[in-house]
């Protein structure tokens, strides 16, 4: 047969063991002009778009449907840290693009360097995230009930929770120890906080207690930073929970529980995605990243850019709104 009009794929089974008989060639037209790996990655990403759209959409709808939503400072969010993390992720997006370019130019060493840098930046992001989570946990903000200290309003339930905490044997012992400590051995801040704590204990136990008293108690335990007080951040340092970390008294953050649920769900799922990306990069680093691996780097990069994309929306929604 001359001038084959049809070509069969080379790996086709019918070729095996048939020698020259397989010279019939078929014209193969792929459904979409892109490689299978990339097609699957984009299909996966389109499901991810809907996944995060559902999470972000519920956050927005919950937030604007809520009667009260805490200000970022009420829940100890720091905008500069969030902005720094945004910067880290943007940088890692650039390094992964540069790794792809280097691999396409067949510069395997350079590609590996950029890939390693991407991995380190991703780890830095997770480290900062862990630090932020720690700041929430240390203030008693947890996504679920057993450890969380957040109450919605300074009502009777809050008052009885404070009383219950102050009545725990371990706390009674610590309080006694604190009361017996001579003033000279306390810092001036601790001495002032001790006298405030004594008044709070009296107010919580008082039979003539009124709603406003409990609001004062809540403010003493952890004041809500006021708007515009030099970046709004200085306010809460002298709350009783901050001066005596062992106290862990219940705190009042109006809307704080719903906030914690959405915050940890959104950032948690995002952090899991970052972690998966890091595992992929770590696996890629085992290869020689020359031109033959460019397809893999491209697909990993697509995923990574998507993770960056989600953070681009998460950052203003969580930290700046």
């Amino acid at each position: 047969m001359s001038a084959p009009a049809i070509s069969l794929p080379h790996g086709h089974d019918s070729h095996d063991g048939h020698g020259h008989h397989g010279h019939v060639t078929l014209q193969y037209q792929p459904g979409l002009p892109l490689s299978r790996g990339k097609l699957i990655m984009w299909l996966f990403l389109s499901t991810e778009i809907m996944f995060f759209a559902a999470l972000l959409g519920s956050y927005i709808v919950l937030r604007f449907g809520a009667a009260v939503w805490p200000k970022p400072h009420h829940v100890h969010l720091s905008e500069p840290i969030g902005a720094f993390n945004t910067f880290v992720l943007i940088c890692s997006s650039v390094t992964v693009v540069l790794a792809l370019e280097a691999a396409r130019a067949n510069k395997a060493g350079l590609a590996k360097l950029w890939m390693l840098l991407t991995l380190l930046l991703g780890m830095l992001f997770l480290g900062v995230k862990a630090y932020e989570y720690q700041a929430k946990f240390s203030h008693g903000i947890y996504p679920a009930a057993p450890r969380g200290l957040v109450y919605e309003k300074p009502d009777l339930y809050y008052g009885s929770a404070v009383r219950a905490r102050l009545g725990e044997p371990a706390i009674i012992d610590r309080l006694k120890e604190l009361d017996d400590t001579p003033v000279e051995r306390l810092t001036s801040e601790q001495a002032a906080a001790r006298s405030r704590l004594q008044q709070v204990r009296a107010m919580v136990a008082s039979p003539e207690q009124q709603a406003f008293d409990l609001a004062v108690v809540a403010d003493q335990v952890m004041p809500l930073p006021t708007e515009g007080a030099d970046g709004g951040h200085g306010g809460h340092a002298n709350g009783l929970n901050d001066v005596f970390p062992w106290l862990r008294l219940p705190v009042v953050i109006p809307g704080g529980n719903m906030w914690a649920s959405t915050y940890f769900l959104l950032t948690g799922f995002h952090a899991i995605h970052v972690l998966v990306g890091l595992i992929v990069f770590a696996i890629l680093l085992l290869y020689r990243l020359d031109r033959s691996q460019a397809g893999k780097i491209e697909n990993a990069g697509l995923y990574w850019h998507f993770v960056d994309l989600v953070w681009i929306f998460l950052f203003p929604l969580l930290y700046l709104f």
Partner: peptide, 29 residues
């Protein structure tokens, strides 16, 4: 979800935080 607070039971209205609670805490501060 977004309009869930338009019609809530009295019990829930009692326990959920409102703008007045933020005001109360500000006065307390």
């Amino acid at each position: 979800v977004g309009m869930r607070n338009r019609m809530v039971s009295q019990e829930r209205a009692l326990h959920m935080a409102r703008g007045s609670d933020v005001k109360l805490l500000e006065h307390a501060a």
